[in-house]
Structures are given as C-alpha cells and as structure tokens.
Amino acid sequence: MSATSTLVFVHGFWHGSWCWSEVVPHVVAAGRLAVAVDMAGHGLYARRPQWFTEQPYNPEAVRTEVSPVADVSLDHAAELLTSQIKRIGGGEPVTVVAHSAAGPVLTRVAQRTPELVAHAVYLSAYMPASGVPAAAYTRMPEAADDQVAPLLQGDPAETGALRLDLATDDAAYRQRLYEAFYGDVDPILADAATGLLTPDGPIGIMLGTTTLTDDGWGSVRRTYLTCTRDMAIRPGVQAKFISEADAAFPDNPTSVVALDASHSPFLSMPGELAGIITPLG
C-alpha cells in the first residue's frame, strides 16, 4: 500500500493527544492526512483521583486511593481505538503510530481487525508477544534500570493504576520525572508537558493479553522505531520486542529505525520523527 492511508497517532500512559501537536503539522505539510486521538483513561477520557486537587496535599491518599480509571481494561482501550480508526478511516485501513503503553492497544486492534490497520508503527512502545501482558516486560532483567518504576506510587493491585505523584512539590521527584520521560527535551517545553500529564494510567491496559495469529497481527506490516536513550522503556526491552515478534512471524519481519532520542521524540525532534513516519504506508 502506498503512503496514502491516514496516519493515526496514539499517545502513551499519562499523556494525551496533545503530545503529537508538534509532529502532526509536519506530517500534514508533507501532504499526509493525520490525526491524534486520546487513549482510554487519558486526555478527554481521563478521570482524576481526588488527591490530585485536594487541599491540603495528602501523601497517604496518593498511595492508597482507588483510581477512577481502575475499571479501564485492554478490551476497553482497544474498543475505543477501533471506533476511532473506523471513524477516521471511514472503513479504509489507516496507519497507526503507537507510543509506549499504546503499543498493546494497537496490537489488540491489529489482531482483531487487521483489515483496519495498513501499517502498525511502534514508537518505543510495548509490543508484547502472544499471550504475554505488557506489564511482564517491566519485570524482566532488560528493564532493571528503567527510571519510571521508582516514580510509581502505591500498589497498582490496590489502586488499579500506575500512578505518578503530579501534585508533589518535591523538586527531586520532578527532576527524576523529567529524566525518565524528557531527558533530551528543552526543560521549558518539558515543564509544560509535565503540567498536562494525568496521574493515573489504567493498570488493566498493561495486564491484558492478546493471542497473536498469522492471519491477525502477524499479517500486518509493522515498523519499530527504537529510542536509543530511552530511560522509560530501555533499549534492551525494545530489542526483545522485535526479536520475539520476528521469531514468531519470520515471514513478516519488523522494519526497524533507530532514533538517538529519549522516550519523547515527539517533543525533542518532532520534525525528524515526522520525516520518518510520513512515508510509512
């Protein structure tokens, strides 16, 4: 398929469709239709816990309050993305670019409705193997030095979310947040982005699994854009996704493009990222 299908951009946990706002204009200027959407539990679908705006600040509530997005599952997220793709593409296949935790959502959609996905593009995203939850990769040796896990608050099994404390005034915590997500992003821009984050990522998206088949996900063309300086999804984990996919579906190998970037190239190098994505059909 030629590079004429509409591009659909999907953000990762805690972010929203806003994070693609520097990329989409480059893509559209190059003559490609493109739109960014919000993932379930995020953006316009976000529901913030009480502690986030409650005064005075209550660190105990940060650790224990059950998330209002605890009921959002991988099924819910995939159903929402499928409906968005159908609306945007009018039934024609689209090219989907998934960042980070949007990866398992794209995988589920491509498995269930491969006819709707012309090309699955994973930008430093979770691309779990058949029957494996994305969360399992956070416990693998390759992920041992990721900088996101130490930032998470409370027990996800109790709160139902992967939670960031975005209400804290702890300068050291906020610096570690910057280093985990935005290490090569201008600090002023990174501060603005941090202000737009939502605190809870639904753990259900990371716990769901998808059984992959040759005529489902295995039949869809895929590209993986690695981020070599990523401190959230470490390069070793990214490599594991690619090797597992290629071992399972050797007749449809993953195309790989390396970016010298942190976890957020949509902010640090939007023009370069757009130049790589725009020709993908």
Rank of each mutant, 00 (worst) to 15 (best):
V97N: 03
L44P: 03
T198Y: 10
S17M: 11
G195F: 01
G271R: 15
T213W: 01
A143D: 11
T107G: 01
D191H: 12
A161Q: 10
V220I: 13
S264R: 15
L267P: 10
V105F: 00
A120D: 05
L44N: 12
G208I: 03
P235F: 12
A232M: 08
G90K: 09
M206Q: 14
L225D: 11
M1A: 15
A190I: 02
D146H: 12
N58A: 14
P199R: 06
T278Y: 08
L74I: 10
D214L: 04
M140E: 13
A129Y: 07
P235V: 09
D251T: 11
A261D: 08
L196Y: 05
V96G: 05
P199Y: 07
T254L: 13
F241P: 00
W14G: 03
S83L: 04
E244F: 04
A274G: 12
E60D: 13
L212P: 03
A149C: 03
W14F: 07
E65G: 02
H11A: 10
P265I: 08
A120F: 09
E142F: 07
T168H: 05
A258F: 06
G43D: 08
H76F: 09
V97T: 00
L177D: 00
G218H: 07
F241G: 02
T113E: 14
Q50H: 08
F249P: 01
Q175N: 13
V148P: 00
L196V: 00
Y178T: 02
A239M: 09
D146L: 06
N252R: 13
V24W: 05
V257I: 08
T213D: 01
T6W: 05
A118R: 02
V97L: 05
G154N: 08
P156C: 15
D165R: 02
A120E: 04
D260G: 10
P156F: 15
A239R: 14
G91I: 04
S83R: 12
A143Q: 15
I233N: 03
V109Q: 09
D146C: 08
E54L: 08
L197D: 03
M1R: 15
F52L: 03
H42E: 05
A40R: 13
Y173A: 05
G281C: 08
A143M: 14
Q238R: 13
I242C: 06
V109N: 09
G236F: 11
I276L: 14
L7I: 02
A125R: 10
L207Y: 07
A239V: 08
L164Q: 05
W20M: 12
S5A: 14
Q55P: 00
S243F: 00
G275R: 14
T223D: 13
P253K: 14
H263D: 10
Y224D: 05
Q175M: 11
A101K: 00
D230T: 08
A274C: 11
L166A: 02
A232G: 06
F9I: 00
M1Q: 15
F181K: 09
R139E: 14
F266Q: 15
I242V: 12
Q238Y: 12
A245K: 02
A232F: 07
A161F: 11
M39H: 13
Y178M: 06
E65F: 03
L207G: 07
P114R: 10
Y178W: 10
T228G: 13
E22P: 04
